[in-house]
């Protein structure tokens, strides 16, 4: 059976990136957040308000950790372009039987695979730690849709950095800073409301991870409403804009110089 070029590249990306370091980054750290940070804070926090109900901290954190997988996988996806450019594989693959679009799709697909796999593991862990998530066709569809959109969004963001960065130091510094800002200035770890510090509140409002987290949290803990649709719309718009920019920058990468 002949596989499409983008699927063959996806296979290559999975095989090449399935190393211990990536797995620790993808699964180990979020699992530690959930199991150590989650249970420790639970003993300090009596309840977290979500959509007019009070839930345990681990119950609150679970969907946040699931949503975080989009950022982690997006980072891995975007870094693939940087790494392939740095180590000569970008040019090597593009003198092979592939179009530039195939390469881009290969990155997006592998990031989505990593997100879905990682999210599933994090969801199971969350179920073990707190349990009580709502699983209906709507909640599952909404969660998967948000995960896929979020992955494309963050992959595009890191692809933009990969396309623009000139040195490895610049790339590493930008991605590390961005990763922590996006991770912690979002609603993944704590609720963002009027009592939050204003700087965190503003940062989280401009942070797409907040919207991805909120949609998934609403889907798995409460009932989706018009606000959920609004947030989904915001994610779609940011994804479209970032993807368009990433595609343009990616197309303009000069080769052979």
């Amino acid at each position: 059976m002949k596989l499409p070029a983008s699927i063959r590249l996806t296979y290559r990306n999975v095989l090449v990136n399935m190393d211990a370091g990536t797995m620790v980054f993808m699964l180990g750290l979020p699992a530690l957040y959930l199991l150590v940070l989650g249970t420790m804070f639970q003993s300090l926090i009596s309840g977290v308000p979500v959509n007019n109900q009070s839930i345990s901290y681990t119950h609150f954190l679970g969907p946040g950790i699931v949503a975080m997988q989009t950022l982690t996988a997006g980072n891995i996806g975007g870094s693939m372009l940087w790494s392939d450019r740095r180590w000569g594989m970008f040019e090597q693959l593009l003198v092979g039987p592939f179009k530039r679009t195939d390469y881009l799709l290969g990155i997006m697909f592998v990031a989505i695979i990593f997100t879905l796999g990682g999210s599933f593991v994090m969801f199971l862990l969350s179920e073990l730690v707190s349990g009580g998530f709502i699983l209906t066709p709507l909640s599952i569809s909404l969660t998967i849709c948000s995960l896929v959109l979020g992955t494309i969004l963050f992959s595009a963001l890191f692809l933009i950095i990969s396309s623009l960065a000139k040195t490895m130091q610049a790339y590493n510094t930008i991605t590390i800073v961005l990763f922590f800002v996006l991770d912690f200035a979002s609603s993944a770890f704590y609720p963002i409301n009027s009592s939050s510090e204003s700087i965190v509140r503003y940062l989280s409002l401009g942070n797409p991870l907040t919207y991805v987290t909120d949609i998934i949290r609403t889907a798995l803990i409460s009932t989706p409403n018009f606000g959920t649709l609004e947030e989904l719309g915001i994610v779609i718009v940011i994804t479209a804009v970032l993807f368009a920019i990433a595609r343009q920058l990616y197309k303009s990468i000069k080769m052979g110089i």
């Binding site: 290559r12 090449v16 180590w87 000569g88 040019e91 003198v95 592939f98």
Partner: peptide, 15 residues
């Protein structure tokens, strides 16, 4: 590209 092979001067390999 479907019918050629290229060994580039620069190092290139998968990790």
């Amino acid at each position: 590209k479907k019918r050629i092979g290229v060994v580039q001067q620069a190092e290139s390999f998968d990790f």
